[in-house]
Design a protein around this nucleic acid. Sequence first.
DNA 1: CATGGGATTGACT
DNA 2: GTCAATCCCATGC
Length: 192
Amino acid sequence: MRPGFYARDVCTVARELIGCVVRHGDCSGVIVETEAYHESEPACHAFAGLTARTQTLFGPPGRAYVYRSYGIHALLNAVAEPEGVGAAALIRALEPLDGLELMRERRGISAIDQLCSGPGRLTQALGIGLEHNGSDLETGPVEILPRRTGAPPPQLARSRRIGITKAIDHEWRYSLADSRFVSRPRPLEARS
DNA sequence: CATGGGATTGACT
DNA sequence: GTCAATCCCATGC
């Protein structure tokens, strides 16, 4: 990504990540769904302040924040906003691009639209784990690559975040309109 | 030191 | 539709 991409408002970052590519080793996919989390609202882990768990969130932008959810799944976020501000964009779904067979092996299923359609599913498919917490998304091993310049901007949809119990009214979930790879049915309102 | 709650998923009724 | 799995870590005693 270009310099400074992540050091901005986390909602802008989450929105502009749609269409970018996540790659780990031989596996990659196009981001079709993200959510923004910010220290100012209680749904964000950083709301509790600087703790052992949230160090990465408050650290430099452009790093991976990976944490374990429900004791089972690893969830991948891109740290945003300037260093010292706790915020990140959760990567919720990908459209599989490369390494389909390895993804199928890791996931134990073959249906392409279920390989990466969920935050826990995509980390399993790409082999991303807690060991990647704090790693640099610019240099890898987990990378986020910009979408091609000149390509038409993706048609976006916006809606409320999923699976949380606090600050549920923020419309901070962004997704690619009409994509069959998002984790839940397409939100109602679409805007560019 | 003990406890409780998840930014989820898959299996099952 | 319901529900359990499973573990990190924040919180409270």
